[in-house]
Amino acid sequence: MDVLINVLVALHVIGIGALLGGFVTQMKAMGAGTARFSPAMLHGALTMLVTGVALVGVHQAEGHTVNNIKIGIKLAVLIVILGLVYVKRDEERIDKALFGAVGGLTMANIFIATLWT
């Protein structure tokens, strides 16, 4: 089971990298008002969702305690990110505030994951 958990964590980190990387690569375009959500951002968010749910399931199946409040908040933030990216994925230009909100929520999710113990 340790190998499965490590693979899921690695895939979760890859998903967060795709989401955050997609945001960072569009920051210059955001300043010009031409930013858009890339497919990598959508796929990264979906990867995070699937691997996060799988990680919680595997941990609970092994009898480990899971902080359900933390997981619930992270899930809610991710669903908002996923919803925004999914709905606006085909638009040529995304409002700066909306694009910045996705980046801020992504960073918030990272800080919740790493700092909340």
Rank of each mutant, 00 (worst) to 15 (best):
L19T: 01
G15Y: 01
H64Y: 10
K96N: 09
V3K: 15
G17A: 04
G100P: 00
T51P: 10
T25R: 15
T114C: 11
A35F: 00
T25M: 15
Q26Y: 03
G57H: 08
K74T: 09
L105F: 04
G22Y: 04
V50K: 03
I71L: 09
H43L: 09
V77K: 00
A35D: 03
V3C: 13
P39T: 07
Q60T: 13
N6D: 15
D90Y: 13
G100E: 01
L75E: 10
A18I: 11
T34I: 07
A40Q: 12
A61Y: 09
Y86I: 12
G21Q: 03
L98C: 13
K88W: 14
L55V: 00
A108V: 04
V9G: 10
S38P: 04
A113M: 01
R89V: 07
I112C: 02
I71W: 12
H12G: 05
T47H: 08
A97V: 15
M107F: 09
I94M: 03
A18R: 10
L84A: 11
I14K: 07
V3D: 14
I16K: 10
L42R: 12
R93G: 00
T51K: 06
N6R: 15
R89N: 06
G72T: 08
A35C: 02
K88A: 09
K88V: 13
L55R: 05
F23P: 04
A40M: 13
L84H: 08
D95W: 01
A108Q: 06
G63D: 04
A113F: 00
G83M: 06
L46R: 02
H43W: 13
M41P: 02
H59R: 14
A97M: 14
G52K: 03
A76H: 07
V85C: 09
G31A: 14
F37L: 08
I112L: 09
L19W: 03
I16G: 09
V66D: 12
F111Y: 11
I71Y: 11
A108M: 10
A32C: 07
N6L: 15
K74G: 09
A40I: 15
E92A: 12
L46E: 04
V56L: 10
R36L: 09
I94E: 06
G103A: 08
I71K: 12
D2W: 14
E92N: 01
G52D: 01
D95N: 10
E92I: 11
Q26M: 06
H59S: 12
G15C: 02
R93V: 01
E62D: 13
L20S: 11
L55Q: 01
Q26N: 02
G52P: 13
F111Q: 05
M107K: 09
